[in-house]
Design a protein around this nucleic acid. Sequence first.
DNA 1: TGACTAGGTAAGGGTAATTTTAAACA
DNA 2: CTGTTTAAAATTACCCTTACCTAGTC
Length: 720
Amino acid sequence: MSTVEEDSDTVTVETVNSVTLTQDTEGNLILHCPQNVSENDQSFEVTMTATTEVADDEVTEGTVTQIQILQNEQLDEISPLGNEEVSAVSQAWFTTKEDKDSLTNKGHKWKQGMWSKEEIDILMNNIERYLKARGIKDATEIIFEMSKDERKDFYRTIAWGLNRPLFAVYRRVLRMYDDRNHVGKYTPEEIEKLKELRIKHGNDWATIGAALGRSASSVKDRCRLMKDTCNTGKWTEEEEKRLAEVVHELTSTEPGDIVTQGVSWAAVAERVGTRSEKQCRSKWLNYLNWKQSGGTEWTKEDEINLILRIAELDVADENDINWDLLAEGWSSVRSPQWLRSKWWTIKRQIANHKDVSFPVLIKGLKQLHENQKNNPTLLENKSGSGVPNSNTNSSVQHVQIRVARLEDNTAISSSPMAALQIPVQITHVSSTDSPAATVDSETITLNSGTLQTFEILPSFHLQPTGTPGTYLLQTSSSQGLPLTLTASPTVTLTAAAPASPEQIIVHALSPEHLLNTSDNVTVQCHTPRVIIQTVATEDITSSISQAELTVDSDIQSSDFPEPPDALEADTFPDEIHHPKMTVEPSFNDAHVSKFSDQNSTELMNSVMVRTEEEISDTDLKQEESPSDLASAYVTEGLESPTIEEQVDQTIDDETILIVPSPHGFIQTSDVIDTESVLPLTTLTDPILQHHQEESNIIGSSLGSPVSEDSKDVEDLVNCH
DNA sequence: TGACTAGGTAAGGGTAATTTTAAACA
DNA sequence: CTGTTTAAAATTACCCTTACCTAGTC
């Protein structure tokens, strides 16, 4: 219970381990624990649903919130069935076609294509084990310095458990550890130099690469893109015509035929003359072929259809999707390759798509779209549906599927990555109400205890900390507002230090607490203007822009007498206040339905606050000891059973720190040690100061417009 | 000598993102 | 008409496989 009163400028931050509080566009909040789960620990996911309720009897603007998902991640597929078979593949170099045929004939199958996250994990683990067993510190010693003899069996050993040919493992390892790979964009100077080297050394990529400090494959790839005769930009009709002719000629097909493979793009480019092979391929597969064969436009229905069709495939791994098959007979699909890229854009609507398993992702997308279907308002954006207030609803929903996984205690305690992150986005909605609304008390109360509620009063806005993606919430305002977080012990918001009383820090206690002790975490927003949302850790910057203007699609026009301006669209009119958001773990099924017609909130700027693990607050300690509630939940839908985990919750000493992460957010993998933790007081970045000043002004005037906030964020982002 | 081991290379098809450009709005 | 936003198109950095090659060695 650290409650910070308006005046008390004490900043208390509790540290938290690893919990992430998130909210998606639709108002869902999700809590989650660290995700790096070692292969063995049981992990489970927790789903929570956030609901917004209208506090008043007044109207509700509809917000639908929902989130869900869950499921245990089984590691089955990772572990190959039959180690013997696997090893047969992974121990074969595949030098010749015969080797391959021989294995194929014996019924062996192996994985091809991009490596999955799981595979990489296995590989890394194998390497680590190998190093440990031999007392070697750095894998590069083996890979680049040892003679073949010295590293005997290295590749074979680390290929264990991977259903890939040894050669593939070898390649990947080389790429992975070659620091001349992944260097990034080529600068104009590098390009110049590359041209010269190319003339001088021809196709001796190794030599050219060495001279440029790039890997051989990197320079080779770059040269493929450089053709002095290449045009850039829009294709002329003449070029398109030539491309079509060449493709048909080389593949012996007729105009109108669908040609998506078996084309030698190098040969095509040669004939087209003004474009590189990649340009030709891209143009053909993403547009020209479709256009010529009478394709139709892609619609929203197609999108939903795609998700459903993928779901029907019931594949466990995305790599198992047969895009050729899926694209067949679908006139609005430009090519299998194009369909796949379409899938990518859909997938990216889920901010943390990379962190969830494929089945979960599909489930989340299905729910998301079903929701949109049920709430047409969500779908129509810019369609001049005449709804004046219909906000700028962005068709792009940036939703996050929250998945929480609990590691067992031992894992947590021993793991260096104890530090966690709490990415949170908070949106300050500009109030349509009088600016006069005074800012009174900014109080954020955090309570820890069985029922904790913290409230954030009035309005706040983001305060950049100087670290990209990391902000402090700054309150500036007025009437008691809005945000109440009720949770079990551990999620807290704190207000700031003496120096900057208006800063708020959001933090949580250790994840164990959250998950274990709390059965319910409720966040209530009494006032319409504040929204908290989390951002996917990986795309803070992009999410800002994407999330920024997402409007609450559920709001009915009728609810709002006056059309809000674009920015305000996100705002809730005063009358409406008190939307309340509740997040609760859905134990069984309870989620979605509950919230159906509630108001939703918008997301905007993103704030990331991260806390440490230790907490020293005595108050907290006392209150914190809640019970040992089970914390796992699995929602229906997935066949996976519910797993319950219990973790004992011991509270550590506290330390209050805010740690800007070098990444702009804290990654679960960041090792947070004391050195990396910066005291709050050190956040004196000029940008921050600038914002502070600005915010003060704004704060006094009450209700800083959203636009301001978003601008701030943008500026901040741009700065970095 | 020939087969095998353990790499190694260039070429080219492909993917995942980012950057640009064009179109749609307010 | 204008400044924004956003969706689509283009571009690019990187990935993976195929087909061949090679030095050492058993």
